[in-house]
């Protein structure tokens, strides 16, 4: 297997929040009947978590399951285990109407860190970021790019976008975090 390469290697840390391209991450789209026993069992085996409730992300170590729509989950696993997880999910769901697709290479992941991290998203997304709950994932747009984000740690957000737009997303995040442009200056 060849070494995975990130879309960008950039880190922007001169502003009021630090924006970084995160390392490769295994991402799998799973569509099917989320209430079914088969999907519950397959998700448990893949991530160690239950099927997340509406707009929730459940993590177990480096693995997670995120609710994307009423019939779609995003399964997050270490990059090198994505192919095996896809095979396991397909085997577990054989016979049930479903779709499992490895989208790891189609996505780019960013982390936005620091006390001002929230303000970066407030500038770019039509979302009431302050009310975003712990463990809630929000699909929206960052300027003109589709994205999804959640609070991944104290003062840290993880944002996922299409890899083909990585350069654009990095540029708008960097611009939104630039020095002196905080919405609520400390």
């Amino acid at each position: 297997m060849s070494d995975p390469v990130r879309a960008l290697s950039g880190v922007s840390d001169k502003g009021f929040a630090t924006v970084a391209m995160a390392g490769p991450r295994g991402m799998i789209t799973l569509r099917g009947d989320l209430a079914s026993a088969a999907v519950k069992k397959a998700v448990k085996a893949a991530t160690g978590t239950a099927v997340p409730a509406r707009r929730r992300i459940l993590a177990e170590g480096a693995r997670a399951a995120a609710w994307m729509s009423p019939d779609e989950l995003l399964i997050l696993v270490p990059f090198e285990t994505a192919a095996a997880t896809v095979a396991a999910l397909q085997a577990a769901l054989a016979g049930a109407h479903h779709l499992v697709a490895d989208v790891s290479d189609a996505r780019a992941t960013f982390t936005i860190r620091g006390a001002g991290a929230e303000q970066v998203l407030m500038k770019l997304c039509p979302v009431d970021v302050a009310t975003l709950a712990e463990g809630e994932i929000r699909r929206s747009r960052a300027a003109q790019a589709a994205c999804a984000f959640w609070r991944s740690a104290e003062d840290e957000f993880t944002l996922v976008a299409f890899r083909s737009l990585a350069d654009y997303v990095m540029a708008i995040l960097d611009n939104a975090a630039r020095p002196g442009s905080a919405l609520f200056p400390a």
């Binding site: 509406r54 707009r55 729509s69 009423p70 039509p126 009431d128 929000r138 699909r139 929206s140 747009r141």
Partner: peptide
């Protein structure tokens, strides 16, 4: 999904 969505979404 229960989101109060802005027109631009």
């Amino acid at each position: 999904c229960g989101v109060i969505a802005d027109e631009t979404e």
